[in-house]
Structures are given as structure tokens and as C-alpha cells.
Design a protein around this nucleic acid. Structure first.
Length: 664
DNA sequence: GAGCACTGC
């Protein structure tokens, strides 16, 4: 453990944050980027593409859009600034509107799902990358925009990666058609610029100075076989040696190990000598109720040390001030996708170098800091340089459908910055063909009328298909509700300590027809009491997610109306709903075998009913399911009881060709 | 008889 001298006094000025005593104009001029403004504008005026590399705190996201606007660059249209996250788009727009001393929604606005605070006056528009992508379906050339700034490009979300290609095509097409040129700026925090620059026709890279403070990195001398034990030891070494005002942020992999380590830390802290101050241990992960998440921002009582045990939510989404020490276990839980089996696996794995640097950076936001890596320098050197972009580890069916809807001629050869495997692409195309979204015509694959409608829903293709089928079964109201319920995080609240109470409360909603109908019963009951909060508490229903369901439902209904889809309810006849689900989800069907196990019908792999399903004790002959989850076994989640005949009816050729239904 | 990182339209 190093000697830790007293830190220099904290700097008064914090980039990107309001400071009551300093006028906004002065604050803006204090940002590191201000010095570079004249040269920057000079270059940006001439360039059609540029890659901007700026460290945290450079002020690039708030200042560059304003500089462009003030200099009259891109005045012919709107300047779009995309963000991977809603909260970022909203808060950045608020900040820039303040700086321009204008009301949000006038000159400066934001557009995220369910919320559009813009007007005809809006010239600086902050938006999620997903929203710009959706807009591109109606206007592939993005003609309203003169400048598109793709921020946080290093995060490489699916949406950003698809947008890279979309703006590149729009830029070229606009030039060919003699339209107003489109300027594309890519902003990234990491130095992995070659890929970006190469992709955008070797565009120039501009470096912006940041305000990051120095961080001392420490490695272990020996590889650690147990990173949790290593984390525990490191936390208490820091606790015994460093001033109590220095908070610790520990990066771990998931809820369970975080809660376990939190308990251990609290136990040990209780039995330490008085010379050690008290320790406040705070868990942080996404599924924690919002009130508990806010605890990480409260300063610990004087003399106490704050220790935050977090998942990678604290890497980007949640920024905590006052962190002096970062402890990095070097591990992360991440989803992987196998295109052959259609299986998603959530697995603990090593972080990338870029991720390790991102974690370390969380210690140096206000002042110099330390990062303890619980692995050796050799192990660090062997980490992969960058996290594999999401586009290379997800199901591509939705992406391919969206590209087709954008009118891109040969989607299987789309110019991705990082190409997904040909297997993943062809498996996505096969999936779309099965759903009837695309078909082969004269050797080419084209979007069908059905596929075009499917693309207008912000849903996975099979859910969109199920909704579009629902009028045939006179149950569109029910199917829209079910799809809405499935497209948010679970509405069921399951505190493990109160399992018996949960089971008792849920009993009255359970349907022998499966999880979908059970969810529908809960939703109907929720609506009957108009979303009463007490009702939600008593019935272990997450009222926040339920409210979200209502918003999704309203959006889906609006799309249905635009498509002239008949909205009607089947009332108590839920068999129709199951018929509809069978027709929409037939690719996710499973069949009971004579030995009591299940086989997935498309891949013939053995699957099991997840214990969380209401059908867990039952042995239905045929089910359709929402997803497969590979943990200790391969589990089907969210099941619906169906008839074999319905499946055959839904896809006679598919089941006749590939499968052997055991039913005689 | 299990257990789920994080976003987003």
C-alpha cells in the first residue's frame, strides 16, 4: 500500500457543472476547449467529417454545438447531437439552454422516446441515437439536419454503429443529389481513432485537451484467484490508511456478489478498533429502487468513509463525486450471443483495457486519485484492447429489418464499421424470412408489405409481427398490452425475503394458460384500480415499470391507428390471445418429450421451464416462449401454453420441413 | 427448483 499524502485543496471550478458564483459566460471561457475555439472553428468550417477526441471535462459536448451555431456553421438546418442515454440527452440540453439563456424547447431542445421538447425554432437538438435512427426511416437523407454530431462514439452501442453507416450514406447521397451538405462529427473519449478515421474516408482527427486529474495505478504482484477476497482486503487496507474523507468505488459484476460483500464489509467494519472511522457501505446496481440508488450521492457523515460497491453502471451512467480510490476487480458480467443456437449467455468475463481505463478515470474527476487493479500488470497487458462492439454480440434481426426499411439496397453487405459475422447476418435474415418480413425476389431479398409495417414498431420483429396478426384473432387490445408488458423490465417485484407473501398475493392472477395471460390479468387489475400505489405495494407490482407499460401501450396503439389496424378486445376469450401468440412466436416453440424434458423445436436443443414461470409445475405438451437464458441449464422464460395444431397452422412448411412433431 | 450486467426505439 503506498504512502498517501494529503491531497492538494480541491479545485473550486468543476467543468460541466453550474457554479453559482461564476457567471455562465466566464465559466464557458474557463473550459479547456475555449482556448482552441478559433482553430477548431477554422477546421470545422472546412471539413465535412472530423473525429474529435476529448477527455472527460473538455466541454466538447456542450460547447462545440454552440460554437458551430454562433459561428453560423450549419445554419441551413438543425444541429443534432446524439447520445446513447436518455438522461444525458435531457440534461445536456438543459445545460446548453441555460448557457444560451433561453427556455428549453426554443433554440435548444431534446428528443427522446416519449418526450419531444423541441419546436420549429430549435436549432440545437440533443437526442438519443435511437431517435435519430428511427427518424431516418422516414427521411434517410436526414434533410432537416445540417450537422450530425455522434457523441460518446467509443461506447459503440448498436444504435451508434448503425448510425455511422446511415449518416455516411446520407452524406454521400446528398452530395450526389446536390443537396445541402451534411457535416458529420464523431466525438469519442478514447484514443482508438484509427477505426473511426478510416471509416469516414480518413477524416482528420482533432484532439481536445481535458481536465482529467492524474491517477496513480497500482497492480497486484501476483494473480489473484479470488477477486472478491482481494477486493475485501484492499478495501480495508485503504480504510485503515487513508483519511476518512476519501471515498472508495469498487467495480464488481452483479447484484448477488455486491450484496454479499456489502454484508461482509459491514460486519468487519463493526469490529475494527476505534482508530478506524466508521464505514458506510452502499450497493449500486440498476435494479435497485431509485430511492436507494440516490444514496450514493449523499455524503457520508463526518469522520465516516463511503464505500460504494457497484456494477458497471458507475462506469458511464452514474457519476459520483468525491471518489478518491477505485478498486477494479477486472471482471464484468456481459451478454454474449450465439447466432447458431439463438442463445444469449450472461457470463462473468474479463474487462477490456478501455474499460479498465474508464473505471480508473472515475477516481480522477475532481482531483488526483488512485486505482487499485486486482490483477497483475501482465494480466492487464493481455486484456483485449477494446470491448467487442455490441453489434457483434447481439441478435441482428431488428437491425436488419431497420436497414431494409431505410431502403438500403444490399443489407447483408452493409458498410458496418465493425462487421458482424456472416453467420449472425444470415441467421437474422432467415429469421425475418420466417416471419414474412422479407422475401427473395429475382435473386434479391426485398422487404414485404408486412415487413414494412413491422419496421414501424419500436419492437423486436417477432413482437411487431404478433401485434400485426392480432386483428385476425380479434384480440389486438390484449396483444398490445402483453407486448408492452414484455418490453419493459419486469413489472413483478420479487423481494426474496418475502417469498411467501409474494406467492400468496400473486395467486389470484395466475393463469394455467401461462405467463403471458397471467401478466395480462395483473395489468387488467392494475388498470381497474387506476394504478393505485397501495394496490401495487400490496400485490408486489413495480408501479414505476407499470407506468412505463402504459406509455409503451399508448405509443403502440398510436402506430396501430396509423396503420389502420383494428383495435378490439377478446374479453374473457384468452384462447384467441394464445392462438395469436402461437402464430407470432412459432420460432420459439418447445415440445414435451416422452421422458418429461423439453426440446426447442427450431434447434432441437434441450430446454427447461424456468422456475419463475407459472407453468413450472405443469407439463404442457407445447409452449411458445419469449427467450432462452443459459445459466446452469438452458431455460425458457415467459411461456404460453399452445396447441400443436396452431403451430402447424402458423408455419406448415417450416414445421413440416424441419421438425418432427411427436403428436400423431 | 433459479437467480438477471447495461442501455434504447
Amino acid at each position: 500500500m503506498p504512502h498517501d499524502p494529503d491531497p492538494p485543496p480541491a479545485k473550486k471550478f468543476k467543468p460541466g457543472k453550474g457554479n453559482a458564483s461564476t457567471p455562465i459566460e466566464v465559466q464557458r471561457k474557463q473550459l479547456p476547449i475555449y482556448q482552441a475555439k478559433p482553430q477548431l472553428l477554422n477546421q470545422l468550417r472546412q471539413l465535412n467529417n472530423a473525429i474529435l477526441i476529448g477527455e472527460t471535462g473538455s466541454g466538447k459536448t456542450t460547447q462545440i454545438p454552440q460554437y458551430l451555431y454562433e459561428a453560423g456553421i450549419g445554419r441551413q438546418g438543425i444541429i443534432a447531437i446524439t447520445q446513447p442515454r436518455r438522461v444525458a440527452a435531457i440534461s445536456l440540453a438543459g445545460r446548453v439552454a441555460d448557457e444560451k439563456r433561453t427556455q428549453l424547447g426554443k433554440l435548444v431542445g431534446y428528443t427522446v422516446r416519449f418526450e419531444d421538447i423541441t419546436s420549429s425554432e430549435t436549432k440545437l437538438r440533443f437526442m438519443t441515437d435511437g431517435m435519430l435512427l428511427r427518424e431516418a426511416i422516414g427521411d434517410p437523407l436526414l434533410l432537416r439536419y445540417s450537422v450530425v454530431i455522434l457523441d460518446e462514439a467509443h461506447e459503440r452501442t448498436v444504435h451508434t454503429d448503425v448510425l455511422f453507416g446511415v449518416v455516411k450514406i446520407a452524406q454521400r447521397r446528398r452530395k450526389e443529389l446536390n443537396k445541402i451538405p451534411l457535416k458529420v462529427l464523431v466525438m469519442s473519449a478514447t484514443m482508438d481513432v484509427d477505426l473511426f478515421s478510416e471509416y469516414f474516408n480518413k477524416s482528420p482527427v482533432l484532439y481536445l485537451e481535458g481536465r482529467q486529474h492524474p491517477i496513480q495505478i497500482y497492480y497486484t504482484k501476483q494473480p489473484q484467484s479470488d477477486y472478491l477476497q482481494a477486493a475485501l482486503v484492499t478495501i480495508f487496507q485503504i480504510h485503515q490508511e487513508a483519511p476518512s474523507s476519501h471515498d472508495i468505488l469498487v467495480f464488481m459484476t452483479g447484484q448477488e456478489e455486491i450484496e454479499a460483500l456489502a454484508r461482509t464489509c459491514r460486519d468487519i467494519a463493526k469490529h475494527l478498533p476505534d482508530s478506524c472511522g466508521p464505514m458506510v457501505v452502499i450497493p449500486l446496481y440498476a435494479s435497485l429502487p431509485p430511492v436507494q440508488q440516490l444514496r450514493v450521492f449523499q455524503p457520508a457523515p463526518k469522520g465516516s468513509r463511503k464505500v460504494i460497491l457497484s456494477t458497471n453502471i458507475a462506469e458511464t451512467s452514474v457519476t459520483i463525486s468525491g471518489i478518491k480510490f477505485v478498486v477494479d476487480t477486472g471482471m464484468v458480467k456481459a451478454k454474449r450471443f450465439n447466432p447458431d443456437s439463438g442463445l444469449e449467455v450472461l457470463a462473468v468475463q474479463r474487462v477490456s483495457k478501455a474499460q479498465a481505463w474508464q473505471r480508473a478515470g472515475r477516481a480522477g474527476r475532481e482531483d488526483s486519485g488512485c486505482c487499485y487493479r486486482l490483477y497483475t500488470e501482465d494480466e492487464f497487458d493481455n486484456l483485449i484492447p477494446m470491448t467487442v462492439p455490441e453489434i457483434q454480440r447481439c441478435n441482428l434481426a431488428g437491425v436488419m429489418l431497420q436497414l431494409m426499411a431505410l431502403g438500403i439496397p444490399d443489407v447483408t453487405n452493409f458498410d458496418f464499421m465493425s462487421k458482424p459475422s456472416p453467420e449472425a447476418v444470415s441467421s437474422a435474415m432467415e429469421h425475418l424470412e420466417l416471419l414474412g418480413a422479407v422475401q427473395k425476389k429475382d435473386g434479391a431479398v426485398v422487404l414485404t408489405a408486412l415487413g414494412k409495417k413491422m419496421a414501424s414498431f419500436p419492437l423486436e420483429p417477432r413482437y411487431a409481427k404478433t401485434i400485426l396478426l392480432s386483428p385476425e384473432f380479434s384480440c389486438s387490445e390484449e396483444v398490445i398490452s402483453i407486448v408492452s408488458l414484455l418490453s419493459v423490465d419486469t413489472v413483478l417485484y420479487n423481494p426474496p425475503a418475502r417469498r411467501d407473501e409474494v406467492q400468496a398475493a400473486r395467486k389470484k392472477f395466475i393463469s394455467s394458460e401461462g405467463d403471458h395471460i397471467t401478466l395480462l390479468h395483473i395489468y387488467r387489475a392494475f388498470k381497474k384500480v387506476s394504478g393505485n400505489k397501495d394496490w401495487c405495494r400490496e400485490n408486489f407490482v413495480n408501479s414505476r415499470n407499470m407506468s412505463l407499460v402504459k406509455e409503451v401501450q399508448a405509443q403502440l396503439k398510436e402506430i396501430c391507428l396509423k396503420l389502420n389496424l383494428k383495435l378490439e378486445s377478446c374479453g374473457a376469450n384468452t384462447e384467441n390471445v394464445r392462438r395469436c401468440l402461437a402464430h407470432g412466436m412459432f420460432v420459439n416453440a418447445a415440445e414435451l418429450q416422452p421422458d418429461g424434458t423439453y426440446l426447442a423445436l427450431d434447434t432441437h436443443q434441450p430446454v427447461a421451464i424456468h422456475p419463475s414461470s407459472v407453468l413450472f409445475q405443469a407439463k404442457p405438451a407445447y409452449v411458445v416462449f419469449n427467450e432462452l437464458l443459459h445459466t446452469s441449464r438452458c431455460y425458457m422464460r415467459d411461456l404460453c401454453l399452445v396447441d400443436a395444431d396452431w403451430l402447424l397452422d402458423a408455419a406448415p412448411e417450416y414445421f413440416g420441413r424441419k421438425l418432427h412433431l411427436t403428436k400423431s
